[in-house]
């Protein structure tokens, strides 16, 4: 008898559609149903490290900001530890490292407050520059897009980062570097995501 492999196939993805908010961010969509919504506080009150804001737009192939996007962020704490049992090390009480935001229905702007993550040491000892992973879903996006936010002021770490260096075209690496400014004394990093065009953001097949 033939040997069978018996693996299952991953459930195929479908677009999040235009009404993703009612499922994943109903308060933002204008109605209260849950005692608490998930993902509005990434770092929690006790997180060490620098408090920052990350914000931007998601821009379509016509150059227009998209106004029905949902983004999720996943990051390590300031010590480079992910809040997950498979990552050895402690995170601060209340630090989850995960967040969820939607774009403004009128402007397409999104943004979240968090702490700047530290560099992460991979299992093989390689050190990855500080970054936040983003997952982007919307109407018209058939499979959620994965990208990474790196930080402009981490010049040395970015230059040594094995993921950035995997991108053959040096100018495309720039699409993953958030630009730093300051507002009310707090660092703000701008990260616009372009879905198409010459400066299309780098997306990862992970």
């Amino acid at each position: 008898m033939r040997q069978e492999l018996n693996y299952l196939k991953e459930t195929p993805s479908q677009t999040a559609g235009p009404y993703v908010h009612i499922g994943l961010a109903p308060g933002a969509a204008g109605f209260d149903i849950y005692r608490q919504e998930l993902g509005w506080d990434i770092a929690g009150p006790n997180a060490r490290g620098e408090r920052i804001r990350v914000e931007g737009c998601v821009i379509d192939g016509m150059g227009s900001p998209i106004k029905d996007v949902l983004l999720e962020a996943w990051q390590a704490n300031a010590d480079g530890i992910y809040a997950h049992p498979e990552h050895e090390g402690e995170v601060e009480e209340g630090f989850r490292g995960w967040g969820r935001v939607i774009t403004d229905f009128d402007t397409g702007e999104w943004g979240f407050d968090t702490v700047k993550p530290g560099p992460v040491t991979e299992r093989d000892g390689k050190v990855i520059a500080p970054h936040i992973s983003l997952w982007i879903v919307a109407r018209g996006i058939n499979v959620g897009l994965q990208t990474r936010v790196y930080f402009e002021d981490e010049t040395e770490a970015n230059a040594a980062d094995s993921v950035l260096n995997l991108i053959e075209w040096e100018q495309r690496r720039q699409t993953l570097i958030a630009r730093k400014s300051e507002r009310d004394g707090k660092p703000v990093y701008r990260f616009d995501i372009k879905l198409q065009g010459q400066d299309e953001t780098v997306f990862f097949d992970i």
Binding site: G61, Q75, A138, G140, I206
Partner: peptide, 24 residues
């Protein structure tokens, strides 16, 4: 999907610690 689909190839990555972990 026409104006919302990336046109360049995605960069394929081996999953690292930030990909095999996720929110609990």
């Amino acid at each position: 999907s026409v104006s919302r689909s990336p046109q360049y190839s995605m960069i394929s990555l081996e999953t690292g610690i930030g990909e095999i972990t996720g929110p609990v």
